[in-house]
Write a protein that binds this DNA or RNA. Sequence first.
RNA 1: GCGCCCUUAGCUCAGUUGGACAGAGCAACAGCCUUCUAAGCUGUGGGUCGGUGGUUCGAAUCCACCAGGGCGCGCCA
Length: 586
Amino acid sequence: MSDLYAQTRERVLAALTDAFPDLPEEVLARVEVVPPREEGRGEMASNAAMVSARAAGRKPAEIAAELARRLAGTPPIAAAEIAGPGFLNLTLDADAWRGVVPAVLAEGESYGDSDIGGGIAVNVEYVSANPTGPLHVGHCRGAVVGDALASLMEKAGYNVTREFYVNDAGNQVTALAWAAYWRYLEALGTELTQDEFAARIPGGLQYGGDYLRDVGRALAEAHGDAFAPGAMPADPEFWLDAVRDFAIAFLLETIKEDLARLGIRHDVFRSERALVESGAADRVIAALRERDLIYEGVLEPPKGKLPEDWEPREQTLFRATLFGDDVDRPLRKSDGTATYFANDIAYHAEKIALGAEILIDVLGADHGGYLPRMRAAVAALGGASFEVALCQIVHFQKGGEQVRMSKRAGTFVTVADLLEEVDADAIRFTMLMRKNDAQMTFDLDLAVSQTRENPVFYVQYAHARARSVLRAADERGIVPADDLETLRTLADPAEMAVLRRIALWPRLVEGAAQAREPHRIAFFLYDLASDFHMLWNRGRDDAALRFLIEDRPAETAARVALVAAVATVLRSGMQVLGVTPVEEMR
RNA sequence: GCGCCCUUAGCUCAGUUGGACAGAGCAACAGCCUUCUAAGCUGUGGGUCGGUGGUUCGAAUCCACCAGGGCGCGCCA
């Protein structure tokens, strides 16, 4: 838990409160110590003088001068100068930066762990794909973002639960049951044609995908023709529940397999059906009704184009408008059963009841319109804050052209298809190089290319290079230095740049976690990889800067320690993103 | 018609929650392999941060309006 930036900030705060004892907490909280944006402005910069100028009744420059006077020469601060409108630019003792190496080696991959999360219970719900088919590429980004966000928040000290909401209730799973039943009849060798069967059933055959053949065959193996004597359709009353449950369980299993191949594993799978059957939706509606948040009423017709079958109807409505939504929202369908929204309120209520203090829903952008009502619902429930990570649609590109996803053409529909083209590491890293709410184009050629333009490769290559050095060092019996005296041989600008980057890691983890932005981790890894490749190349140009030098044991031990620290931080970051740190490139 | 998200270099995108002259990678141009992996590295050029106002010591960042792109809009999930 060492963080050089945090330590330096403490020093600045101490100097500030010594000089100006009456500064209010809010002002102190705004004091930052950050890496400067550009070279030549010291090694750390603080806004302390500017944010406290008003409260202290002094000019920023005066405060900065006072701070500089008090701080300069007090370890780890070597020099302090005033710049611009009142910035305090600090230069640290080189030993302070070097000290990061033993800290990293001692802490290992837990270097960068933080406790800002304070053990707060966070529930991250992601993927939540309908169990009516294999995982679709449309779910991929949310799956990767949700998983990385969960890992990131764990690293920052939150107590995270990874959750998958199984939408196994409602009309769609009934339709699924019928479709699975058709494949079952097929497996039994029915005389009916698909069209004849489709004509007999409510709503027609809605799921025509081949993947249901497997479900049909498995049903036939497990149950023989018990649900369809003579391979002819029977009264659904005798089979519908069983076939539906069988199909859902089967497909959920394939979804879990797809997720596993992406390196994703949830802690909790919560069934909507179980929730409904437990009466949770009814209970939550009743509870809201007691607080006068539910009423029977008629909604205004929607603006713009009117749905063809629209007619005024009295419904059970939730007063979402009291909590910022545009309209009140229906909780019961005309047949009296709960709407998806009503069940979802019950689901979120359950997450809160089980202790979650922060609820994060990772959703596709097509659910954007659903947000205001869910936000309103959680606000009405109380007890937890509600956050959403919206993931914009991903377009895929190959050979310079956009890949059209079509079920009929049989290309690029499922995550399994995608995994045929690109491995999980490339998928994860590439998707995490973008902010989740920005549209992105996924270039399949780039993601598999072994060039610098491909960030996945670039970062993995850096790690492999570092490991290659460490293996060579190990063979020669070199022990990484952990004492400052030996590490003092690290002095080249490229070496110091790597040290400064590594020192930034804990601060970066905290910032990314608080902003809920895992993509920052990807960018950091890219930057660290870049620093390391640069350092490597210095050794190419100048033999004196190589890592392993036969007759210079001190330099060698120090540089091996630095390389080990780089490899450790790279691994630490890749772990958050769920990307494999490879030992060597083949 | 209304709501949410987005708009930064020719292209793909960052911008550390309001800080210093706006950054990186591609692409363009000029260099670097007797070596622990050149699958890489170094340098140069390139911007009215979609537009107009406002808030303040300070705005790509916050607010308002406008333009363009995406998503959504009662008893589907």
